[in-house]
Amino acid sequence: MDNRINQIRRTIRALRVSMLEAEAIVREQINRDEDCSFVAHEILKMRSVMSLLVRERTALGDDEPILVNCLFVPRRRPARSPVAARPLNYGVVSAQGLAARI
C-alpha cells in the first residue's frame, strides 16, 4: 500500500509541474491573442486525472501535503507600502532674524 501511495504522490507532483507549464503557455498564447483551446483542454484533462488520484490517495489514508518547487515568477510587482512624508521643519523666524537675512 505504501508503494501505491508513493507512486500516486509522484504522479501528482509530475502533474502539478506539467499543469504549471501548461498554464504559462496559455498565458503567453492569450497575451499574443492566439487560440489556447487545445492547451486549456489538456489542462482540464490533467485536472480530472489529478482529482481521481487525490480521491484514491485519500482512500488509502494519505493526507500529508505534497510540496512542489514552483519557479513561477509573479507578473505584477509587489505593491509598495506608502512612505509617510516627513514634515518639513519650518522654524519660527523673528522679524529681527528675517531682517538680518536680507
Rank of each mutant, 00 (worst) to 15 (best):
V73K: 11
T11L: 06
V17A: 12
V17M: 13
C36S: 14
N69M: 04
N31H: 15
Q7C: 03
T58W: 01
A59F: 01
R13T: 05
A22G: 12
V17E: 13
E56T: 00
V92Q: 04
V92S: 03
S94V: 01
M19Y: 01
T11S: 09
C70T: 11
Q96T: 08
P65Q: 07
R16I: 09
L88D: 08
E56K: 03
R4S: 04
R32M: 13
V73N: 09
Y90L: 11
E64Q: 11
V93C: 04
R75M: 12
M50S: 04
D2N: 14
S18D: 13
S37T: 10
A85Q: 13
I8R: 08
S94F: 06
A85G: 04
E28N: 11
G97P: 00
P82T: 06
L52K: 12
M46A: 15
S37P: 06
V54S: 12
N31P: 01
A79E: 15
Q7A: 07
R101S: 11
V93E: 11
N6V: 01
L71H: 05
V83M: 04
V39W: 04
S37K: 11
A85I: 09
R27G: 06
A95F: 05
D2E: 14
R32Y: 08
R80G: 11
F38I: 14
L44A: 14
A14P: 04
A99D: 10
P74I: 02
I8G: 03
M50V: 00
E42R: 14
V49Y: 06
F72V: 11
L67K: 07
V73P: 00
D62M: 00
Q7T: 08
R16C: 06
L60V: 01
M50T: 07
G91M: 10
S37A: 14
H41K: 07
I30E: 08
E42F: 05
R57T: 02
R55E: 11
R27C: 00
S18I: 02
R77F: 10
T11Q: 13
V39F: 03
F38T: 15
I43L: 08
L88M: 07
A100V: 02
I12T: 06
L71P: 00
V92H: 04
P65F: 03
P78L: 13
L60K: 02
Y90V: 12
A99Y: 00
P74A: 01
P87D: 15
E42S: 12
L71W: 00
I66Y: 05
R57E: 06
S51R: 05
V17W: 03
G91V: 13
H41D: 10
V39M: 15
Y90I: 10
R101P: 00
E23V: 02
N31S: 15
R77S: 09
R16D: 12
S94R: 05
D2W: 05
R76V: 07
D63G: 03
V49Q: 09
F72K: 12
G91Y: 15
A24I: 01
R9D: 09
A84T: 08
A95R: 09
L98G: 06
S81T: 12
R55W: 01
A95E: 11
D33I: 06
A100K: 10
R4V: 11
F72S: 10
Y90A: 09
V68C: 10
N89W: 04
I43A: 01
V83L: 04
P65T: 07
R80Y: 07
V93S: 05
V68N: 09
V73E: 14
C70A: 06
E21Q: 15
